[in-house]
Amino acid sequence: MATEPIDLEAAGLCTDAYGSAIGMPQLCDAWFGNQIFWLLVTLVVIYFILSRVALPRIAAILAERQGTITNDIAAAEDLKAKAKDAEAAYEKALADARAEAGRIIDAAKADMKADLEAGVAKADAEIAKRAAEGEKAIAEIREGALVAVKEVAKDTAKEIIAAMGGKADARTVTAAVNARMKG
């Protein structure tokens, strides 16, 4: 608001002598031309800024982002498939390894069983051999004992006969002892 009076005619009769509005400045037709002219200039400038620079650029940015997102999703799908394949391969390897391990365990068990059986058989054979030897030794000892008993019985019979004053006939004594021992 101006504080001193101004040239009213020059101001277009839409302001009073103190520069204040008379009525609605919106209805002052002296100012229409100016506003319309500058508005048209502004709209044309804005239109060219938008249609030449801003809108194509933003559209390109949005399209690029959409493309990036699509590519990333495709790559993610790809990686997911790969991960699935890898998992399947891993599972297969695991199953194979389990089967192999089972096979190895079975083979080892069979080996051990065979070894064990061989060992047992060998031990049995050894035991049988030892038992046979033992029996043989016992038989020998028994045999030896029989002969010794016979000798002792003959000698004893001879001594007894001699002590009783008789003369021992060796052949008779032997026959008697033999007869006795058989009985």
Binding site: A10, S20, Q35, F37
Partner: peptide
């Protein structure tokens, strides 16, 4: 003066100078 804010005036020159269609004003 609630309507004074809507007054169109030239940005160059003095208050009360005439406003032609090409004058750079506060609208401009």
């Amino acid at each position: 003066h609630p309507m004074d804010q809507f007054i169109v005036k030239p940005i160059f020159g003095q208050a009360g100078d005439p406003v032609f269609w090409y004058t750079p004003t506060n609208v401009t």
